[in-house]
Simulated assay, not measured.
Amino acid sequence: MPRGLGQLSLLHRLSDFILPKDKALAKKYCGLGELNRLNNIRRSLFIKNLGSVTDAGKESQAANLIEKRFLEILTLSWGNFDITDEAIIKKRGEALLDGLRPPENLQELRVWGFKGERFPGWLTDLPNLVALKLWTCTRCRHFPQVGLNKLKELRMEHMMSLEYIPEECLRSLTSLEYLYFKNLPRLTSLLPGLRHLSKLVDLTFWGCEELDLSKDESGNIILDFHGLQSLRSVKFWEIPKLESLPQWILQLRNLERLHIFSCDNLKALSEQIEALQSLQWLQIEDCRSLTSLPEGMRRLTSLTHLTISLCPELKERCKRDAGEDWYKIDHILDLDIEPYFSF
């Protein structure tokens, strides 16, 4: 961005603010300080190449984001830079994000490539935040203890070091409707915190290698999930520890859609699956260890669509009029039993 941009104090729209990648160009182009007086920016702001900032504390404070009271959506992206000193990376990242505190009226925060281990305390002090999206914050190990009671959407992707999310955090997300976790390889459990999300509508887990959806951190099976009666859609994708449907799934009386993709160790659906009397759509793809359907499938009277693909043995058992499991599914109006993915 050209130097002098910060003089446009009445500017209303600035979608992208791009910092120079090359330090040699820093004197010719904008630093974060040019944002200081741009307090009339409306709607959204995307700040790119934050990884190029060296004086993290000073420059982030100079940006004065907290005074941009008309800002609704803020995206912060670090980018890729050749810095190998882990201590420097961590220190700069945390100091930078700490100083980029947004205004209290912010509704959506997106963070891409944050280099620190901990998020700043102000993250849980944004009273109007309804969406939080975190991508590729690969060093982050901990999530704030206290949540946001207006948050409706929480999305995390490629959080390679995140090990747990405190139950207190999930308990406080009283308005959460959409939860999406992708590629969190160290996350081991979300139980029992998950059961507190009484307004949750859509839940997705994708590529969580260590995640056990049946037990808590101590190995205890959590049974009471009757509070999740708003949940309508659940997706499991590449969850190696999913060997059968977790018992709490069977308590979701209003569940309408269940999708299970590429769960190599899934060996059985529950014999009590008939408890899901609101289930309308069941999709099972690339679950090669699943070899039969439970008897309870016959009593899923609301089920109108069933997809089975890349499940060789199960496909054979579900052959029309000839397969051993055909009688369990012959009442379903829309059957898609094919040897390929159908997204």
Rank of each mutant, 00 (worst) to 15 (best):
T188D: 10
L176G: 02
S175D: 12
R186I: 09
L194H: 05
R195Y: 08
R186E: 11
L197E: 02
L190F: 08
S189R: 03
S189F: 04
G193S: 07
T188R: 12
P192V: 05
R171Q: 15
L190V: 10
S198E: 15
L187Y: 02
G193D: 01
N183H: 13
L194P: 02
R171M: 12
L191E: 06
Y178C: 10
P185V: 08
H196F: 15
N183I: 11
L191I: 07
F181V: 03
S189T: 09
L194C: 08
T204L: 11
L176C: 06
G193E: 03
R186W: 06
L197P: 00
T174V: 13
L179K: 00
D202F: 10
S198D: 12
P185H: 07
K199C: 11
S175Q: 14
R171K: 15
G193P: 04
E177W: 04
L191N: 04
R171E: 12
S172N: 15
F181M: 10
V201G: 09
L200I: 08
Y180W: 12
T174P: 05
Y178P: 05
L184K: 03
K199R: 12
L179E: 01
L200W: 03
S189I: 01
E177Y: 06
S198G: 08
L176H: 01
L200T: 01
G193F: 00
Y178H: 14
T204M: 12
Y178Q: 10
L173H: 03
P192C: 09
L187R: 02
L187M: 11
R195G: 08
L187N: 03
L197N: 01
E177V: 08
S198H: 14
L173G: 05
L184S: 03
L190G: 04
R195P: 01
L194V: 05
L176F: 06
L200M: 10
P185M: 09
E177G: 08
L179M: 12
P192K: 07
Y180M: 09
T174D: 09
L184C: 12
G193I: 05
T174F: 05
R171I: 05
L173N: 01
T188K: 14
L184T: 07
V201M: 15
L194Q: 00
S189W: 00
H196G: 02
L197F: 07
L194T: 01
V201A: 13
